[in-house]
Design a protein around this nucleic acid. Structure first.
Lengths: 236, 236
DNA sequence: GTAATAGTGTCTATCAGACACTATGGT
DNA sequence: ACCATAGTGTCTGATAGACACTATTAC
């Protein structure tokens, strides 16, 4: 069969890694896991993006593999999940030539309080600032930087931040989320005009009660697909 | 779950494929190669994107592998080359679970006339319309569609079309290239204002002579990096 | 001169930013 | 009444599109 021709090629290791983001405590957070200390394991004890080998028996395709790893760590089944890119080289893993397929995911912090700690005691949320100082395993610092770069640039012209909010939210909460991810403040009036004109959200009947004027609550018009704006926010 | 020994994981096949585009004869063209007819080869005789197995002895990393394949087919050494994404599943290759790292490249048609045919007699340029009707090998139809989609959407807000032109060109030629890739016409005055305001190009002394008024010639200000515009062209 | 393409100017529409203003709840 | 946050209106500036206009070459 074709096996003979194939045998000429040594096969690289194949993994999937996921940069999982949420917004909590007024900061963009990324989920990291600690590498095992077992002998033979590379980067023992270091923090890394959640991920691991593709399991050719369990994973029908790459996206399923990423979803499986996401579910194992967070319990979230249907997040915003986007392919980020792939990193492959002879040098990135001491065990040999390896290629990883990197994804990035946005999850609402709401259902997370339950799982974090319980299911995966080696997993922890880090504010992205802290994570940047950790000397991550493999080339995960580079992958995380690429994920942050992709996220921050897409926030300028898409509805991505809406995916870290619970299903119902106010426009002020949405704006605050944009500001946290962008790292700069936005003008309220322009923000609302833009979001409403793009028909990104639709009002539901309810209002959020608080110590002051109640706010209209909204929901994404299409929770599956992000919206793209024709213009970016202007740089300050 | 406890960490598995490395040997327990069957390794997927690892390949790199490149969608190589240029503009010629008033059309966007993509380079395809014909699959070999040898026994045991999947999709014999079908057209496919140029690509193949990562060679862990020759390729230090994925990008180098893509550049090698590009060079083999076109002779071009320093094109615009961008990672497109990866496709991996149990089903896409009859030889087993496989993952491909897809790139897309933009090359100037100028140095190509030489190589096309000579170096790789199984390689041919197809207008993307024709290519769409070919029933390509593997999932290459899907990959090509993704490359086209990425290219067309980036053309709305980047300087990518400039990379299929020779080093010196006129603004009319640049505009015509945009129009071919976008599939719609653009307004001359707005186009020129936009391109010049973005400082994408710089005039060189020369003019292009012709049967009518000569045109100023330009060169990319930074031939390595694309320029991003803050706004897209408005939809027609 | 004419034909043909290069290149400019003027007007309008759209939308982000700035900023002041009004609205509505709790206390 | 006062505070805090929700939400609106009005003005300005940047830039894309439409379209007419001028400029410069070959013939």
């Amino acid at each position: 069969m074709a096996k003979q021709a194939l045998a000429e090629f040594a096969r690289p290791l194949t993994t999937v890694d996921v940069a999982i983001f949420t917004v909590a405590h007024d900061a963009l957070q990324v989920l990291l896991v600690q590498r095992p200390e077992a002998p033979g394991e590379p980067f023992p004890g270091r923090w890394a993006l959640p991920g691991g080998f593709v399991d050719v028996d369990r994973d029908p395709d790459l996206r399923s593999c990423a979803l499986r790893k996401l579910k194992e760590k967070t319990g979230v089944a249907s997040p915003y999940l986007e392919q980020l890119g792939s990193w492959g080289s002879a040098a990135r893993d001491p065990r040999g030539w390896s290629a990883t397929h990197a994804y990035f995911a946005l999850v609402s912090r709401e259902p997370l309080a339950l799982k974090a700690g319980g299911n995966a005691p080696d997993a922890r949320w880090f504010a992205v600032g802290e994570a940047g100082e950790l000397r991550l395993a493999f080339d995960h610092a580079e992958i995380l930087a690429a994920a942050l770069s992709r996220l921050r640039s897409k926030v300028e012209y898409t509805s991505l931040p809406a995916f870290v909010l619970p299903r119902e939210f106010t426009l002020s909460e949405l704006q605050r989320t944009y500001e946290i991810v962008l790292g700069r403040s936005l003008e309220k009036s322009a923000f609302r005009t833009r979001v409403l004109a793009a028909r990104l959200v639709q009002p539901i009947g309810k209002t959020r009660q608080g110590p002051n004027r109640p706010a209209q609550m909204y929901r994404l018009r299409d929770p599956r697909a992000p919206v793209f704006f024709a213009r970016t926010f202007n740089p300050r």
